[in-house]
Design a protein around this nucleic acid. Structure first.
Lengths: 207, 207
DNA sequence: GAAATAGTGTCTGTTAGACAATATTTC
DNA sequence: GAAATATTGTCTAACAGACACTATTTC
């Protein structure tokens, strides 16, 4: 008996026009998460890299395996990955894809709504204990932009003073000599320090 | 071109004779994580359930998908699950399997050492912020047994007073009227409350 | 000078972690 | 009563969260 076909799917998030968006591909009726079959000769990683590089013009993208779906109602087993790109990343021409705000999703195929929901939970969760948030921002950013990113993803208002204090104390960012000018007072630009240990300080519930 | 074959593998942990052990299956030379092919008609969940029920005489087992391995050097793509059983669980006759202490592992096939290492990290991590620890214990247990479980898995000594205080304050366990007698003063038996919300109180690093 | 945005400090309540003596049982 | 194990409380340092005003720029 032959195995079921294997594919990878991608949940690609980005922050655009003040909302968190996900990239969806057009399907006969409705939309779906972009996918790619895994052929015999190709590894999962290779299939995912191929899928990603066909969509976005980025060299380095934050990418993480999310979950593998293989329920009985599915035609194929799908290994789903989860990726983050900053707003500057451009879409490549080719497949019909669009960024959809999470609050205004179109009809999605099969179990893709469930997958997307899980990816969003995972994103929110990781935002709180790891440094993934910086993957949604350009290389240099202001503290207000950083806070704004957190507020949009978490869908929650944060206190400016507490936010700044902890971000700076954690040592995860460092200031640059540059400023961003705009409407009001210019804001200092910071950059992420990938070398800083983004340690997960969990308050052990069951120590 | 046909897809690569698909299988599930299982990392099954248990606490036996004062050490954390993993169940391994014999292979031509050496040992490996128990596995099962996923045939076309079967879902991942069904293949895993079949694998598990061929090994252990338990109805309910804590089970969680760990990761899917599909590197280029592999013959098959493997969806790896991670399971915990208490020491009371008995092995079923059939395949040649044995419990190995994690500190005295035999030679393991392919990337199985890496998989096992990841599973152990995940177990330790989850122990700190979720209630998985109870899956390694019988339905009723003393606080000393619970602490002992944590100490063995985390490989770290814990303070008795702080441990008890937080376990009790969290509301995750409730006392029973029974006691366990033995060498010294009898110890009260507690039971896990699956209904209690095992909330993950993370100290937000990046708030 | 009005509007817009950036930047800054303090207080309080809670919690983690360090620490030692008493209580109850068996043999 | 000796040995073994169970049970209990306090103090301190660190941190989360609440909260409001001043600074710098543009138009």
């Amino acid at each position: 008996m032959p195995d079921r076909p294997l594919e990878v799917n991608l949940v690609l998030f980005s922050l655009r026009e003040d909302s968190l968006r996900v990239l969806l591909a057009e399907r006969d009726p409705g939309w779906e998460l972009p996918g790619e079959p895994v052929k015999a000769a190709r590894s999962l990683e290779e299939a995912t890299a191929r899928l990603l590089s066909g969509l976005i013009d980025r060299r380095e993208t934050y990418l993480e395996q999310l979950y593998t779906y293989g329920g009985p109602q599915r035609a194929a087993v799908s290994v789903v990955y989860f990726a983050l790109v900053p707003a500057e990343a451009h879409l490549l021409p080719g497949r019909t894809v669009r960024w959809f705000p999470l609050v205004k999703l179109p009809a999605l195929a099969g179990d893709h709504p469930e997958i997307l929901g899980y990816a969003l939970r995972r994103l929110r969760y990781k935002l709180e204990y790891s440094a993934v948030g910086f993957q949604l921002l350009p290389a240099q950013f202001t503290l207000s932009e950083l806070q704004h990113t957190y507020e949009i993803v978490l869908d929650e208002k944060l206190d400016k003073r507490n936010f700044r204090r902890r971000m700076l104390q954690s040592g995860i960012i460092e200031s640059t000599p540059r400023f961003r000018t705009g409407e009001g007072r210019p804001a200092r630009l910071y950059r992420y320090r990938p070398d800083a240990v983004a340690e997960v300080k969990t308050r052990r519930l069951f120590p």
